[in-house]
């Protein structure tokens, strides 16, 4: 493996019920009825989802007309604004893995509501994994401040940037994430993002 690529096993992310319900669009104030099969979904998934990530550092070069991200060039204004003042960036792909997709398919077979809740759990898992990764990255770069994550599809960053990200991070071989011709990620609960490094 290219030593510039870092594979991280993020392990098990605790399932936080309140977060899962938020992703399921459960109204915050509403009482949770006994019939809501949340506990059942969490039990189905317990101990089965292992989150993984791969990341790599790149120098950032800003010119009048474009950004050289090290793995691709883009004219995106919103990303330029987001990375203002950064000389380096971290690119990562994080996934809740194929097991999460299998769990969603299994939950969906029980009922659409199980499916919705398992989707929400998947979202909570991959977002939790991204948080855990970014905390670890922040510790690895103590001299820097990390910007929030910025993903293709945000602002004017085109989804097609995914192609460059996938070849830069070798996602398919490193952590088993595939990009389809329609630019969807498989497993579905996966996130790619750029984080800027600002000197403190």
């Amino acid at each position: 493996m290219d030593p510039a690529l870092h594979c991280v096993d993020l392990g098990l992310i605790p399932a936080e019920e309140a977060e899962v319900l938020r992703y399921a669009q459960w109204p915050q104030a509403a009482a949770i009825p006994e019939d809501l099969p949340l506990a059942e979904c969490l039990r189905m998934a317990e101990g089965r989802v292992r989150c993984r990530a791969v990341w790599r550092q790149y120098p950032l070069i800003v010119t009048e007309t474009e950004l050289d991200l090290g793995f691709a060039r883009t004219a995106s204004h919103s990303l330029k604004k987001h990375l203002e003042g950064c000389k380096n960036l971290l690119l990562f792909c994080c996934t809740a893995g194929a097991e999460m997709d299998r769990l969603i398919a299994r939950a969906q077979l029980r009922s659409p509501l199980h499916g919705l809740l398992m989707h929400a759990l998947g979202a909570q898992q991959v977002e939790g994994a991204c948080d855990r990764l970014c905390e670890a990255l922040a510790r690895s770069f103590p001299e820097h401040r990390l910007t929030p994550r910025f993903s293709p599809g945000y602002g004017d960053v085109p989804l097609s940037l995914q192609r460059e990200i996938f070849s830069a991070l070798d996602c398919e071989r490193q952590i088993g994430v595939t990009l389809t011709d329609s630019l969807l990620m498989r497993p579905g609960k996966s996130v790619t993002a750029v984080v800027g490094l600002k000197s403190c």
Binding site: L21, A24, Q25, W26, P27, A30, P33, D35, L36, S111, P112, L113, L116, L117
Partner: peptide
Amino acid sequence: IYLPQLMMSAEA
């Protein structure tokens, strides 16, 4: 009423 509540009613 929110989506999961709608779905619970639909499943009932």
